[in-house]
Design a protein around this nucleic acid. Structure first.
Lengths: 167, 167
DNA sequence: TAAGATTGAACGCTCAATCTTA
DNA sequence: TAAGATTGAGCGTTCAATCTTA
C-alpha cells in the first residue's frame, strides 16, 4: 500500500489529520505571539511559568525543571544560560549536594512573565477556548490527559499545579 | 498578578495545561519513531504523504505543498533539496508558467513512505487511539477542526483527502 | 511591478562526550 | 562508579535579501 495511514479506520484517520493540524499550527501561533510581543519562546515562557509556580524561594533543580518542561538537560542548560544573561534567572549551587544546580526566578524574570501575561492569555483564548463549549473543554481535558498519561511520567510540578487549581 | 494564566477559568487552565502536554510530547514521540525507524522527519513524512495523495502524475507546486504542510516556502525549499539528494522527489519546472516548480514523488520516495507505514501507524495507534473511545475520537476530531478552522485557511489537499475518506 | 522560489546567515535544538561532585 | 549538569559539533528552522519569470 502506498497510503501510510490506511490502517487506521476512516474515522480515526480523519481525526488524526485534524489533530496534526492542531499539533503543527497551534504551537507556531503561540510562539509567534509570545516572540513578537514579549521576546519570549513558548518554551522559555513555560520555564518562567514553572519557576513562578514553584512556590519556593530556593528555585528548582535543573533536572526537575527539565522534567517539568518535558525536555532534557542539555536543552534546558542552554536555555537557562540565555535567560541568565537576560537577567531573568540565576543559577545557584545547592549547598547540600554540590552537583545540583537550582534555578531561581529573579524579579526581572517575573516582570517579563507578568508583562507577557495579558496578551498571551488573550491569544490562547482566541486560538482555543473561544471556539469550544464548556462541554468540549472538559472533553478535551480528558482526552489530552489520557494521551499524555500513557506517554511518560507525569511531571511533578504539573501535579502540584493541578492540585492548586482543583482545590 | 504573577500568574500568567490566571485569566482563564480553572476549568480552562487545567485543560490548557493538559493540552500543552500533548502539543509538546506528541510531536516529539512521532518524530522520534519516524527518525529512528525510517530516517524520516515528521515533516518530511507529511510532505511525502501529501505528494502520494495528490492523485496526479504532475506533482504539486512548491507553494501549494507549503500551504498543505502548514509551512512556508523557504523551509520547504530546503527540505525538498534534502529529499531530492536522497532520490525521493524531483523538481520539475512547470511548462505553462516557468516561475512555478512542481515537486514529483519518485519511486524511491514512495518506497520509503511505504516502508515507514506499518511502524508509523502502530505508533500513532499506541500513542493516541489506543487510549480513546470511539466517542472520544469523534469529539477530538470536532474539537481539533474547530480550533484549526479558526486559525488559517484550510489546506486544499486536506479537503481533498477528507472528501476521499468521507465518501 | 509582482509572483514564485531560492539562498545564506543567525539562531535554536539534539546528542554524544565531558566535567564535576557524591 | 554513578548522578547532575555542561559543552561543542552537526543539523534543521527562520527570515530577510535575492533571483527569475510573468
Amino acid at each position: 500500500v502506498s497510503d501510510d495511514v490506511l490502517w487506521l479506520s476512516p474515522e480515526e484517520e480523519l481525526t488524526w489529520i485534524a489533530l496534526i493540524g492542531v499539533l503543527v499550527q497551534l504551537p507556531s501561533a503561540i510562539d509567534a505571539q509570545l516572540l513578537r510581543d514579549s521576546g519570549l519562546t513558548f518554551f522559555e515562557h513555560g520555564v518562567l511559568s514553572s519557576l513562578s509556580h514553584a512556590g519556593t524561594e530556593d528555585g528548582l533543580r535543573m533536572s526537575d525543571l527539565a522534567t517539568i518542561s518535558s525536555s532534557h538537560l542539555p536543552r534546558l542548560s542552554q536555555v537557562i544560560t540565555r535567560m541568565e544573561t537576560r537577567g531573568w534567572v540565576r543559577r545557584v549551587t545547592d549547598a547540600a549536594d554540590r552537583r545540583v544546580i537550582r534555578v531561581v526566578l529573579l524579579p526581572e524574570g517575573r516582570r517579563t512573565l507578568d508583562d507577557a501575561a495579558a496578551a498571551h492569555v488573550a491569544n490562547v483564548r482566541r486560538l482555543v477556548f473561544d471556539h469550544l463549549s464548556a462541554t468540549q473543554v472538559r472533553q478535551l481535558r480528558t482526552i489530552a490527559r489520557q494521551i499524555t498519561s500513557a506517554m511518560g511520567s507525569p511531571s511533578p510540578l504539573l501535579e502540584i499545579r493541578k492540585e492548586q487549581l482543583e482545590r
